[in-house]
């Protein structure tokens, strides 16, 4: 059933026997695990070996590695300021992980790691947990002022619950945004791919008609490449913004 557009999101064990059990849950080596390993090793190799010459005049790969470094550093610096830079490795890892996951998912026949709500939600929870830990470590109980905006007292009865809800829904919005974007894009590609197969197999004039969804797939592919980068960027910049709130509350930037 290659025509089922949801089949590509199936997490399947590549080795039938579970590798180990954690608290009674079997851990399998899955197609997703393989892609995660490829993604992390590829980005680690890219960022390490592109810099192996440490040339003053960089090669193309080296300047790409430097560009991604300076891109994330600039993002973090402008969103969270100088003291935000100590979270650089964390934000850089998130950005590279999501970016490479999205891009490797674009390869036909591979698996999109970020199309799984479990993965995106785990990443988003990691971000929010970091924000909470940093916030309480820096401001103590004063971190709760984050939920009290500067407003007249009667309005606070309305605003504090809103702030609380918006904070608590952050892990959901952060994770669902990435997950839904990846899922929708890849589903759309699979659906149009199914049209191509069906029309092409029908024979006659319908085979010629199959070129239309084919062209559409090419266009959507380009769009999806943009979305792949954009979603990694959005995830990273929101991480920066949330970290900034933890560091500076609402006071200053």
């Amino acid at each position: 059933m290659a025509l089922n557009p949801m089949e590509q999101f199936e997490v399947k064990p590549l080795i039938e026997q579970p590798l180990l059990h954690i608290a009674g849950h079997p851990i399998f080596f899955t197609n997703q695990a393989l892609l995660m390993i490829i993604v992390t090793v590829a980005s680690a190799l890219f960022l390490t070996f592109a810099m192996s010459r440490r040339a003053l005049v960089p090669s193309r790969t080296q300047s790409m590695a430097e560009m991604s470094y300076e891109f994330v550093a600039g993002m973090l610096n402008s969103a969270a300021g100088e003291d935000g830079l100590k979270f650089f490795p964390f934000v850089f890892t998130i950005f590279m992980f999501v970016l490479f996951s999205n891009f490797f998912g674009m390869i036909p026949g591979s698996f999109t790691v970020t199309s799984q709500i479990a993965v995106t939600f785990a990443l988003a929870s990691l971000v929010i947990l970091t924000v909470i830990v940093v916030g309480f470590a820096k401001h103590g109980i004063g971190f709760l002022r984050l939920f009290v905006p500067h407003a007249p007292l009667p309005l606070l009865f309305l605003l504090v619950p809103i702030e609380l809800i918006s904070f608590l829904t952050r892990p959901i919005s952060l994770s669902v945004r990435l997950f839904a974007n990846m899922l929708a894009g890849h589903t759309m590609l699979a659906v149009f791919g199914g049209f191509v197969v069906l029309l092409g197999g029908a024979g006659g004039i319908l085979s010629v008609l199959s070129l239309a969804p084919m062209a559409l797939i090419v266009a959507i592919m380009l769009l999806e490449l943009l979305v792949a980068f954009l979603q990694a960027y959005v995830f990273a910049i929101l991480t920066c913004i949330y970290l900034n709130e933890a560091l500076h509350l609402h006071d200053h930037h």
């Binding site: 390993i37 993604v39 992390t40 430097e66 470094y69 590279m96 990443l123």
Partner: peptide, 29 residues
């Protein structure tokens, strides 16, 4: 469980590499 496990392993691996090796190297260059 498998997803969380592999995410934790690979993310931690990438974090350590970027934190300890790639980041300082790029920053130094």
């Amino acid at each position: 469980p498998s997803q969380f496990f592999w995410l934790a392993v690979t993310f931690a691996f990438l974090f350590v590499v970027l934190w300890r090796v790639a980041g300082p190297r790029i920053a130094g260059t």
